[in-house]
Simulated scan of single mutants.
Amino acid sequence: MLKHHSPSTGRPTKIAVVLVVLLVITFAMGSCSPGGYPGPVESITFGTVLLEPSLPLFVAENQDFFVGNGLNVTFKIYDVGLNAATGLVNGEVDMASPVAEYVMVGKIFDSRKIQAIASIDKVDYAFVIGRKDHGIEKVSDLKGKKIGVVRGTILEFQLGRFLELNGVNPADVTFVHGTLPQSASAIANGDVDAVMSIPPFTTSIQKQLGTNAALWSAQNIQPFYSLVLADAEWIKQHPKTVERFLMAMKQAEEFIINHPDEAKDVLRNKLNFSDEETARVWAQNQFLLSLDQSLILAMEDEARWIIANDLTTEKQVPDLLDYIYVDGLEAVKPNAVNIIR
């Protein structure tokens, strides 16, 4: 005798199980990076500037390297690295870059608990530009002149050093402090005799002055380091976040090296640079992730200069190694760490 089976009561149960699994997967995908990072996405507020040393950041954003490492990065734009660093110490952002090493030394003297986790660029692009119609043909002619420069930045330090190396006492010139755009306007209008500046402002100044411009490279082949800074306590609480950020920077570095044409497109689109200006960037910048002993030596030199010029009440150079966090970069790119400890 045949037995008649009633519809299986297991079918609805299987469907329910499948739905639960799908819901779990959907939730997991929504809380993880779409780029493949298996953990939760973490948000970072990042202070930066719209200048060429920021290219690794632009590339990481453009190529989704941040997203791929589980980071949701929101940029807050400042005019110069000094103000980005000030935003960091004021709690406006979690990290800041590019910040010149001189600015970091100044913050250290101000007793700020910050650390550098890497340099993302080394650049030699600062120039002193003088007006020939103001009697400036050679560096010694800068004596007694007014020179526009941004206060508290590495440009002010490098201007002082440039003058000293060329036999001009900085006390014998007048520093006129203003923003980069203000300095550019001041020399174009003849309100100052010279300026210490960087691209793209130096490019526009040269075009405006034409043959009336006297031009000198001001860095004496000493590059500026474009540092990534964060609060020391924040780093202590977010060591894996630091590693993921540095992995995104490593990927950006490799992209710039292996895909220069695409990287140049990123720069042109972000900063509205011409082909000529973009070619100059590649000649003057080294977009490499690093922590070098030469960075420490530069910072020590700048600290001594700050002390000698009474720009701090401190009398001793601090132990700058206390302000360098090497663990993150050692985990991501160990051969990029060359600091003697």
Rank of each mutant, 00 (worst) to 15 (best):
K107H: 12
S140Y: 04
P56A: 08
D172A: 10
N212A: 14
L2K: 10
S119Y: 04
Y37F: 12
A263S: 15
V242S: 02
E314M: 13
R244S: 05
I307S: 09
V99N: 06
A336T: 11
N309M: 07
S8W: 04
S197T: 13
G35L: 04
N335V: 11
D79F: 00
P334D: 06
R341Q: 11
A230T: 13
W305C: 06
L22F: 10
D121G: 04
K250Y: 08
Q222W: 01
A188C: 05
W216K: 04
N189D: 08
S197R: 00
V176D: 11
D64K: 06
V228E: 08
D231F: 00
M1R: 07
F273H: 05
V337A: 04
P7Q: 12
V41K: 13
L289T: 04
D319E: 11
P34S: 03
R304S: 14
S6H: 12
G130A: 11
L22Y: 02
P53E: 00
I117A: 06
V41F: 05
L271Q: 00
L180C: 02
D172M: 09
S111D: 14
V281E: 05
Q63K: 15
I307T: 09
S290Q: 13
S217Q: 09
E276G: 03
F65G: 07
Y325V: 07
D319Y: 03
F157E: 11
F224T: 15
K143H: 08
D172T: 08
V173R: 04
K333E: 10
K240F: 09
Q206A: 06
P53V: 03
D191P: 03
Q316S: 12
S97A: 15
Q158T: 09
P181W: 01
L159Y: 12
K146Q: 14
R244Y: 09
H134K: 15
V128N: 05
I205A: 01
Q158Y: 09
K264Y: 01
M247R: 15
V123E: 02
Q316L: 09
M29S: 00
F273V: 00
L329M: 11
D191W: 12
V139M: 07
I108R: 02
T13R: 15
L321I: 12
E233Q: 15
R112G: 06
Q293W: 02
A84N: 06
A28E: 00
V149P: 03
A126K: 10
S8E: 08
V266C: 08
W234G: 01
Y325C: 06
M1H: 11
D231S: 09
T312C: 10
A331V: 07
L155F: 13
T48W: 03
K333G: 01
Y78P: 08
C32W: 08
V173P: 03
A336F: 07
F46M: 06
D301S: 15
M299N: 04
P223W: 05
G130K: 05
G91K: 06
L229S: 05
